[in-house]
Amino acid sequence: MIKLLVYIAIALTVVLLFQLMRIYQLSSEIKGKNIGMANEKDNRSQGRASLIFVLGFFIFLIWLIVRFKDDMLPVAASDVGKTSDNLFMFNWVIIFIVFFITTFMLFFFAYKYAKTAKNPTAYFYPHNDKLELIWTVVPSIALAVIVIYGLSLWGKMTEKASDNALNIQLYAKQFDFTVRYSGADNKLGVTNYKMIDDATNPLGMDSTDKSGWDDVVVHGELHMPVGREINIQCNARDVMHGMYFPHFREQINCVPGMSTYMHFVPTITTDSMRTIMHDTAYDYILVCNRVCGSGHYNMFLKVVVDTKAQFEKWLATKTPQFDAINKRSHGGAVTMK
């Protein structure tokens, strides 16, 4: 019933609008006005509107920056993140200079060169090779600098992790992350997706691989020591997931059927960050950033950066997964599903 009324209301509105337009058009035609083409008055008013717009546009942008700048991501909390922030700033400077100049010119010219009695004719100016050469070459140089700067950082981000990096696995499934620490040997044991058992072996660890015997599986939190390089192996069980650490300026996808890697050095502990942010509850976070299903928006992991001592103490409270499994399956391999 309500739907029907809505439809009727819409239909009546359309009819009304059509009638109003008809009246407007007929009255204009009687006065001899052309309602389809711009006249001098339109040129002047729309030209002025363009100028007002560009000023309003800049004010809006500046207001947004002032209003929300404190809610943006805080200072980067990793080694690569610091360089990344500098590069970001460098880009922003170039972008804002170009943006303000070109945008202003665009709308200002529209205003200034409106066709009026004062400006009845245009200047025939089909090309100027020198000018065109300048604005091909200058952006090329600016971009070359950006490319070189950017690629040097990219190289650092994606080079092989150092040998003494702490090896961790992050394992994504709908809709949570699981962490596996590599234990005393700093080596992750191999896994096989056919050995997955949600109750006893959620990551599908293969118990015939000794390097996995000391691996520690942790749900619900990721702890990392500050100042040490972390080398993360990323895996996914079911669909693709995105592993995004906004505070460390790092991101990579977790892809079923293959491992991907990222590494960085956390540089600010959670406690220090809380001091910086004046917020005793502030936490780092890992979020899924590749749409993965209905619970995608709830796929988070709390991240804690500890001091070395805190981290070791925390890790010591955890038991390797196989200690628990071995008791149940009499020390043998986990049965194939």
């Binding site: 711009a38 010119m105 665009l106 010219f109 529209a110 400006n119 065109e132 604005w135 490319v147």
Partner: peptide, 30 residues
């Protein structure tokens, strides 16, 4: 990265050319 940033050059040329077309025009605001 390299090829993508290259594409910014012809794009910039287009933007500058549009702006220059407006310069010293006699603009009808249809």
């Amino acid at each position: 990265v390299f090829t993508t940033l290259l594409i910014a050059i012809p794009s910039a040329v287009k933007a500058f050319n549009y702006i220059t077309t407006l310069w010293k025009g006699s603009i009808t605001f249809n």
